[in-house]
């Protein structure tokens, strides 16, 4: 039997797919946050960052296609595994107890699906720049700064000027962090990289990462909503 059959057919193989694709997506989420924090430095910094990305289309598209493959595999494994999980317990208990499991661990499918909906909106909002979804009546694609670059700074300020959108963004990031607080420690377990000695450290690192992501990502809409950036 070849390795692909193990990966795609067996329960553990599907978990490896989930873990590896999850790890790749986490790396992107961290990088995306670090890049976007240049917004807090000012218009020049984030516009230069955006310009840099758009002058490397081969890198940009390789990343985008890679991320798409990761997301498709991550969601496919989630659905395949969840369907098997549902089938494994057709009759539930009259008295339900969490038995020591965390809220995040029990709601991975739901938090993941909501985050996916958020990502679709987020892409339409800032990447595709569909005017219909930004609620400002303006076309983000026409925003150009004094040096003729895409004016990402203005796009973000304008994008988060609508509180409903800023709050939806913060809820999306919050759920993503909840998802990762379990997912990051769990991926080490699924790949067999979590031993008893390292488990507390890995769990702690996952929680710290979740908190850092919330602080980092929330700082952007909050700085717009509070009027610090305009």
């Amino acid at each position: 039997m070849n390795i692909f059959q193990f990966l795609f057919k067996s329960s553990l193989g599907r978990k490896y797919i989930m873990a590896v694709t999850g790890a790749a997506l986490v790396v992107f989420v961290i990088g995306h946050m670090v890049g976007n924090l240049s917004f807090l430095l000012g218009r020049e910094e984030i516009n230069a960052y955006g310009h840099f990305l758009h002058t490397k289309p081969e890198l940009l598209w390789a990343t985008r296609i890679g991320l798409l493959v990761m997301i498709v595999l991550h969601i496919w494994s989630a659905i395949a595994l969840s369907a098997a999980n549902k089938a494994a317990r057709p009759v539930g208990y009259a008295v339900q107890k969490s038995n020591g499991s965390s809220y995040a661990s029990r709601t991975m499918l739901m938090s993941g699906l909501i985050v996916f909906c958020f990502i679709v909106y987020h892409l339409l909002h800032f990447t595709v720049q569909a005017p219909a979804v930004n609620l400002t009546g303006k076309d983000f694609g026409t925003l150009i700064d004094s040096e003729g670059r895409r004016d990402i700074y203005s796009m973000i300020v304008l994008g988060f000027s609508r509180p409903a959108i800023a709050i939806f963004y913060m809820v999306g990031v919050g759920l993503l962090s909840l998802h990762l607080s379990h997912g990051v420690s769990s991926l080490f377990q699924s790949l067999g990289l979590r031993s008893k000695g390292y488990a507390p450290l890995i769990n702690c690192a996952a929680t710290v990462l979740a908190v850092v992501l919330i602080i980092g990502y929330w700082s952007i809409p909050l700085s717009v909503l509070t009027g610090l950036k305009k």
């Binding site: 999980n85 020591g100 991975m108 379990h182 420690s185």
Partner: peptide
Amino acid sequence: GNCTVTGACEA
């Protein structure tokens, strides 16, 4: 079913 590392089994 599959393991989602909730830890209920261990508990």
